[in-house]
């Protein structure tokens, strides 16, 4: 059960470089190298791999635009990066020797905090300070603390949901591995692929919901 504790490799200044951080770097490196290779020779008439890549990007854009029309390209960098990173990080846990970065609460909380900061950023960018803050006192200024509490709790719920699912999954696989190392963990590992993708989808879709709500707050407030 060593994955329940976070192994610290070394310190960079005062910041600890843990196994999770190293796994994150590896996942990041793999994603960036794959991206560079995939986009090296983009053609006007796409081949098989380019088609898959375009389908993924267009899928993310469509997913965003279904909830927040005309904002697909604006939110694509954050939402796309979240989907790719969480999906890859969840699956990284299945590689022997690697730790799923998302099974560490620091990672999921970091992601949730980025989303927490992105919500007012995109809200203010699209609606302006006045319109964005007006929503916090709608329908009455008394509601302002509740709005703030709601935003904080949903950030924690976002982080905890992903962390809990991935950690739980890893614990189950580890227990099964201890009990019967040969065949029994395999179905669970296959299931882990499924849940890993599902969790990435849930985190991404909730992020889109929060961001689109922030972008279109003025409309909903007026409506």
């Amino acid at each position: 059960m060593e994955f329940l504790t976070t192994k610290i490799y070394f310190y960079l200044g005062t910041l600890p470089v843990t196994k999770t951080v190293v796994s994150t770097w590896l996942v990041m490196g793999a994603l960036i190298i794959a991206s560079i290779l995939a986009t090296r020779h983009l053609k006007f008439i796409p081949g098989r791999w380019q088609n898959i890549l375009e389908m993924f990007v267009e899928g993310i854009i469509n997913m965003i635009e279904d909830m927040s029309p005309h904002n697909g390209k604006q939110l694509l960098p954050l939402v796309g990066a979240l989907a790719l990173f969480i999906g890859s990080a969840n699956l990284a846990g299945l590689i022997p020797g690697l730790k799923a970065p998302t099974s560490d609460f620091n990672t999921t909380l970091a992601l949730a905090l980025v989303v927490f900061c992105a919500v007012p950023y995109y809200g203010v960018k699209n609606q302006g300070w006045k319109n964005y803050l007006k929503v916090y006192i709608t329908p009455s200024p008394i509601m302002a603390p509740f709005h703030i509490i709601s935003e904080v709790t949903r950030t924690f719920s976002l982080a905890l949901r992903l962390f809990g699912n991935i950690l739980g999954e890893e614990i189950v696989i580890a227990i099964l591995f201890i009990l019967s190392p040969l065949i029994v963990p395999v179905p669970m590992m296959l299931f882990a692929i499924f849940t890993g993708v599902i969790q990435a989808y849930i985190f991404t879709i909730l992020t889109i919901v929060y961001l689109s709500a922030a972008i279109e707050k003025e409309d909903s407030a007026e409506g």
Binding site: I32, S35, V57, A110
Partner: peptide, 23 residues
């Protein structure tokens, strides 16, 4: 712990790099 700062920086860097090289 303080590794959360690393993870935030990591993710922000990843967003920028993916934007530059992929999206």
């Amino acid at each position: 712990d303080r590794s959360i700062i690393f993870q935030i920086i990591n993710f922000v860097v990843l967003v920028m790099l993916l934007f530059r090289f992929l999206f």
